[in-house]
Design a binder for these strands. Structure first.
Length: 648
RNA sequence: GCCAAUAUAGCUCAGUUGGUAGAGCAGCGGUUUCGUAAACCGCAGGUCAAGGGUUCGAGUCCCUUUAUUGGCUCCA
C-alpha cells in the first residue's frame, strides 16, 4: 500500500501495517509519541491495520486530536476503574473535553473525595496493567443484546437512538468493554498522569427532565510536569477570581438577608461602574443615540404585548394583589427583565416618518431577572443588574449599516477595556425543533437568520453558529467571554428583531406613503456593568487600569512634618479631577506602601522632609516601583495623559 | 430548580471520641515620627449562618431554612 504524508511525500508499506508500525519505520520516537492518526482526514485509531492507499497524519499529545484520544481513553480507564470497584454502577457517557475528560455514572450515591482517591489508585493500576485497546463492531440487534446482557441500560438507549446505518463499535480493554466511536490510544499503559478533579451532578442527555447522574471530571497529560503546571495554573486562576478579589478590594459584598444574586456595590465598586456608565453614555451620545429613562416596572398587559408574559414569565419578578397572577380583575405588575417594550413606547410617542429613521435609543437600564437559585455567581450572574441597553428602529435598507455601527461600538468598548483578544463571536439561532419557545413563523426566522449571516460575513466576523441560543423574538450575535474558571458568558449582544415592531404597532410612513414596520436592533455596547466589572477584576487581577481605578493616587507622608504638604498635593490633584486619597496615619512608610500596593492603587506619592523642602513628590508606581522624584506638575501631566488615553 | 461541598471574630484559620470558644492579621487605646511591601505594648471583639430536634450536656450528632462554592439545566 502507498501512504501519502502531510508533506506530500509517498512511501510504500506492506498492506495491513498499523499506523504505529508505519510511524516506527519513520522514527521510533514518532511511534512512541503517536496517540492516534488521521486516515484520509478521518481521525482514527493508530493501532488498527491499514489497507490500501491513503493519506496519513500522526497525532501526538501536541495535537488537539492526539490529546482528545489520550483523554478519551483516560475516561474509559476511569469507567473501568469505577466498574471494578462498584460493579452495580451503570455507565452513561464519557467524552474528552477541553482540558480533560469526564464520565457520567448512574450511582446510588454521590462519589466522595475518598472514593475519587480510590478510583484514581485503581486507574493507576489499570495503566500499569497495560491492556491493549481492541475495537470491534456488532450489528444493531447484537449490540443491543450485548449491552442488555452487560446490564447497561443507558448504552442500550444510546444504541436505539443511533441512525439505522450507523456503525456500532465497541472498545475493549482487559475485562472492560464500552460502546464507543473512538478513536483511542493503543493501550491503557499509554494513559499516564491522570487526575480526578471533582464530582458534579449532570442530567442524563442534558435534560432536566431526566435522571441526574454523577459526573466525575478528570484531566490527563502525557508529561507529569504538564499536569502539575496545569494544577498550578488552576490555583493561580483562583487568585484572580473576582468573587474573592472583588470582596477583598471592597468593591462589593453580599448579605444573607438581602438575598441571592443581589450584591451590594461598595463605594469603590460603585465608582468603577459609574465611570464605565459615563464613558458608555458619552460614547453613545457621540454616535447619535438618544437617552431615555423608563420605569423599572409595568403592568402585566405590557408584557402580554411583548410576549414576555408567555415566553419569559419564569424569568420575571411578578407583584400582584391577588394570589392568581392570571386573575383578570387583579392588578399585576412585573419588574422589567428587558428594556425593549419601554423604549418602544418612546418610539410610539408620535407618528414616525422614514426620515426619522434610524432612531437610536439608549438607556443605562436596571433589569430584574428571577434566575434559578443555583445560577447565581458573584457579579457575573445576578438577579438585578444594570446594562447599556439600546434599541434601534431602522428601515430594512439601513439594517446592515446600523448593525455595523453596533458592532463597531462593541469592538470599540472591547478594545478600550482590553477584552478584544479574550472574546469569541457566537451567532445564536433558534431551535427549529422547539418552536414553542419563540414567536414568529419559520419563514421569518429563516429570513432573518439568513440576513444576519450575510451581514456577519460582509463584516468579516469570525463566528460559530449555535442553535437554540436565540432570544424568543430573534437571532443574536453574542460576544462571549470566559471567566477565570473557564466558564463562558455573554458580554455583549446584538440582535435583529422582525417581530416586536408589529406586535407593538410601531410603524413609520415611508416615502411612498405606506405604513411600514421598522426592523428593530436590540443591542448592548458593553454587557451588564456588574458582569463587566467582574471580568475586569479577573483580567487585571484587581489592578484596574488607571482611568477606572477607584483610587488613582495615594499620598503617603513619611512623618507628620509632611502632612500639610501632602494635603496640598492631594487637593491639587483632586482639583484636576484625579481620585486621590491621603494616608495621614501614624505608620511607617513601608506599611503604608504595602497597604496601597495590596489595594492596587496605581500611583503612590511619598512625601518626606526632602520632598517638602524641594517641593517635589517621590512617585511610586504599583507596577514599576520607585520612579524617583519629580515636580507635581510633571507627575500630574503624565498621569492625566494616561487617564485621557485610557492606557491599560 | 437539580446533584454535591461548605458556613466558628471584619479577614485567614484552630477547636481531640459531644463536657458551654482560641490564634494571627484588621479595629480601638497608648508608645514610636520612622525613606519604598508588615514597629512595639495593651484593650476590645463571637446567640459558633438562622430555626428546630437528640442528649444530663451540642460549635461538634440529626432535620429544616438561608447564604456561599463547584457542576448540570437555564441565561446578559
Amino acid at each position: 500500500m502507498i501512504l501519502t504524508f502531510p508533506d506530500g511525500s509517498k512511501r510504500t508499506f506492506s498492506d495491513g501495517m498499523t499506523g504505529i508500525e508505519v510511524a516506527s519505520e519513520i522514527s521510533p520516537r514518532l511511534a512512541k509519541a503517536t496517540l492516534s492518526c488521521a486516515i484520509d482526514g478521518v481521525h482514527s485509531d493508530a493501532f488498527r491495520p491499514i489497507h490500501g492507499d491513503h493519506s496519513i497524519k500522526f497525532f501526538t499529545f501536541e495535537d488537539e486530536n492526539g490529546r482528545w484520544a489520550y483523554r478519551h481513553t483516560a475516561s474509559h480507564v476511569l469507567a473501568q476503574a469505577v466498574k471494578r470497584l462498584y460493579p452495580e454502577i451503570k455507565l452513561a457517557i464519557g467524552p474528552a473535553i477541553e482540558n480533560g475528560f469526564y464520565y457520567d455514572f448512574d450511582a446510588p450515591e454521590a462519589f466522595s473525595p475518598d472514593d475519587l482517591r480510590r478510583i484514581e489508585k485503581e486507574m493507576e493500576k489499570i495503566q500499569q496493567e497495560n491492556h491493549p485497546l481492541e475495537r470491534f463492531e456488532l450489528p444493531r440487534a447484537e449490540a443491543i443484546a450485548y449491552m442488555e446482557q452487560l446490564g447497561e441500560p443507558y448504552k442500550v438507549e444510546l444504541i436505539h437512538d443511533l441512525p439505522e446505518d450507523a456503525t456500532i463499535s465497541f472498545y475493549k480493554e482487559g475485562d472492560f468493554v464500552d460502546l464507543c466511536a473512538g478513536p483511542h490510544v493503543a493501550s491503557t499503559g499509554k494513559v499516564k498522569n491522570c487526575k480526578l478533579m471533582n464530582v458534579a451532578g449532570a442530567y442524563w442527555r442534558g435534560s432536566e427532565k431526566n435522571k441526574m447522574l454523577q459526573r466525575i471530571y478528570g484531566t490527563a497529560f502525557d508529561k507529569k510536569i504538564d499536569l502539575e503546571a496545569y494544577v498550578t495554573q488552576l490555583e493561580e486562576a483562583k487568585k484572580r477570581d473576582h468573587n474573592k478579589l472583588g470582596r477583598d478590594l471592597e468593591l462589593f459584598t453580599t448579605v444573607d438577608v438581602i438575598g441571592q444574586g443581589l450584591p451590594i456595590l461598595l463605594p469603590k465598586g460603585a465608582r468603577v461602574i459609574q465611570l464605565l456608565e459615563r464613558f458608555v453614555e458619552d460614547e453613545e451620545q457621540k454616535r447619535g443615540y438618544l437617552l431615555t429613562k423608563t420605569p423599572f416596572m409595568a403592568k402585566r398587559e405590557l408584557y402580554k404585548i411583548s410576549g414576555h408574559w408567555d415566553h419569559y414569565r419564569d424569568g420575571m419578578f411578578i407583584m400582584s394583589d391577588s394570589a392568581d397572577v392570571e386573575d383578570p380583575e387583579a392588578e399585576v405588575f412585573a419588574l422589567r427583565p428587558m428594556t425593549c417594550p419601554f423604549q418602544f413606547m418612546a418610539y410610539l410617542n408620535r407618528p414616525r416618518s422614514y426620515r426619522d429613521l434610524p432612531l437610536r435609543y439608549n438607556e443605562t437600564s436596571t433589569l430584574f431577572r428571577n434566575e434559578s437559585s443555583g445560577e447565581m455567581h458573584g457579579l457575573i450572574r445576578v438577579r438585578q443588574f444594570t446594562i447599556s441597553e439600546g434599541h434601534l428602529a431602522c428601515r430594512p435598507d439601513q439594517v446592515e449599516e446600523e448593525f455595523k455601527g453596533c458592532l463597531d461600538l462593541a469592538k470599540f468598548m472591547l478594545d478600550t477595556l482590553g477584552f478584544s483578544e479574550d472574546v469569541s463571536y457566537r451567532f445564536s439561532k433558534w431551535d427549529e425543533n422547539d418552536t414553542d419557545k419563540y414567536i414568529g413563523d419559520k419563514a421569518s426566522w429563516e429570513r432573518t437568520q439568513d440576513m444576519m449571516r450575510v451581514i456577519l460575513n460582509d463584516l468579516n466576523v469570525t463566528f460559530t453558529e449555535v442553535d437554540g441560543e436565540a432570544a424568543f423574538y430573534g437571532p443574536k450575535l453574542d460576544i462571549q467571554i470566559k471567566n477565570v474558571h473557564g466558564k463562558e458568558d455573554t458580554l455583549i449582544t446584538i440582535q435583529i428583531d422582525f417581530q416586536l415592531a408589529e406586535r407593538f404597532g410601531m410603524v413609520y410612513t415611508d416615502a411612498d406613503g405606506e405604513k411600514k414596520y421598522p426592523v428593530v436592533i436590540h443591542r448592548t455596547s458593553i454587557g451588564c456593568y456588574e458582569r463587566t466589572l467582574a471580568l475586569l477584576i479577573e483580567k487585571y487581577a484587581g489592578a484596574l487600569p488607571t482611568w477606572i481605578a477607584p483610587v488613582q493616587v495615594k499620598v503617603l507622608p513619611i512623618t507628620d512634618r509632611a502632612a500639610e504638604q501632602s494635603k496640598v498635593v492631594a487637593a491639587e490633584l483632586s482639583n484636576m479631577g484625579v481620585r486621590v486619597e491621603t494616608d495621614l496615619r501614624n505608620e511607617k512608610i513601608g506599611f503604608k506602601i504595602r497597604e496601597s500596593q495590596m489595594q492596587k492603587v496605581p500611583y503612590m506619592l511619598v512625601l518626606g522632609d526632602k520632598e517638602v523642602e524641594q517641593s517635589l513628590v517621590a512617585v511610586r508606581s504599583r507596577k514599576d516601583g520607585d520612579l524617583g522624584t519629580m515636580t507635581l506638575d510633571a507627575f500630574s501631566a503624565q498621569l492625566l495623559k494616561e487617564i485621557a488615553t485610557k492606557a491599560r
